[in-house]
């Protein structure tokens, strides 16, 4: 359980990060909270020659409300999200999800940007980002670009981030009035990845569903955008029949990998159950 040797870099400015990435290419890995990368390196499943630590880059920290968006620096930790009054007020879903990630110590180190950009279908933020219709700011040698969450997750450990790019910020449109949201996660224990989880954001108007987005965790090669499931809710009162239909449509897109958490059938069924659970909770929270 000892990492292979590597060279360590801890630049304090973003351009220096990008320059290092450019210089070392495939041989470099970005280090954020370290709770995905370092265990992989200790197991020697990963052995980068260069590790670029982002901890000193002050511009990657911070939470702000700007232009109707909550903007979160990519190096913001899970506990910073949980303890943030701003996030609690405007995007309580993020607090609910962050509380269900890993364990307290990991949440002091683990970052939202690391969780998203790793491209691990077992991570929780990707599905939440899909449900919140978030966008990600990516910076590279060619400048900045903004990618929608819906376009970001391409495959297992595969994202729209180009080589040489760094995720700098997460932008979440503040949900409007009439919105309710929930993250329902089934896991075996604290610290586990989801057997299945669902993030739901609902907007109700005059008793019917005006908008809905659903993201699913760990039941496919990436976090899944359950678009059809969400569409099926539009115009309904999100009653039990509508909830069941949405769950069925969500289950239809699941392609989970069997492991000790369960087989494909169980995980798919649990994705449906978590969608139902999250929808009921979200509906109860509409205000």
């Amino acid at each position: 359980m000892i990492p292979r040797p590597f060279e360590y870099h801890a630049p304090s400015a973003l351009p220096d990060v990008i320059a290092l990435l450019d210089k070392y290419g495939d041989e470099a890995k970005l280090l954020a909270g370290g709770h995905s990368l370092l265990p992989m390196m200790k197991l020697r499943f990963a052995g980068p020659a260069h590790v670029i630590d982002l901890r000193k880059v002050a511009s990657l920290k911070g939470i702000a409300l700007e232009g109707g968006e909550i903007r979160i620096g990519a190096m913001t930790t899970e506990n910073e999200l949980i303890f943030s009054a701003l996030v609690a007020e405007h995007v309580p879903l993020l607090v609910e999800a962050a509380r269900q990630i890993a364990d307290p110590q990991v949440r002091y180190k683990g970052t939202i940007g690391g969780d998203i950009s790793h491209g691990d279908p077992g991570n929780d933020h990707p599905a939440v980002m899909l449900a919140l219709d978030a966008a990600f700011v990516l910076a590279g040698a060619g400048g900045e670009r903004v990618v929608q969450a819906a376009d970001f997750f391409l495959g297992t450990f595969e994202t729209a981030m180009a080589p040489g790019e760094v995720m700098t910020q997460i932008r979440i449109p503040v949900p409007g009035p009439g919105t309710g949201a929930a993250y329902a996660k089934l896991k075996r224990k604290t610290g586990d990845y989801a057997t299945a989880a669902a993030a739901v954001v609902l907007r109700m108007k005059d008793g019917t569903c005006a908008a809905a987005r659903i993201g699913l965790t760990n039941v496919g090669p990436t976090a899944l955008n359950a678009h059809d499931a969400a569409q099926a809710l539009l115009g309904t009162a999100v009653d039990e029949a509508a909830i069941a239909q949405a769950a069925a449509k969500a289950m239809a897109i699941c392609e989970p990998a069997a492991d000790l958490r369960g087989d494909e059938e169980y995980k798919t069924a649990m994705a449906g159950q978590m969608v139902e659970r999250a929808l009921r909770l979200a509906l109860s929270r509409v205000k």
Binding site: A10, H35, D53, Y108, K109
Partner: peptide, 27 residues
């Protein structure tokens, strides 16, 4: 545990509880 699950290595680092098995000393 070596895999940052058990917490036996917990130390307080700049006001945060962290697992010292998953922190590099250079950090």
């Amino acid at each position: 545990c070596d895999t940052s699950h058990c917490g036996a290595c917990t130390v307080d680092l700049d006001g945060l509880s962290v697992k010292a098995c998953t922190v590099l000393t250079v950090q």
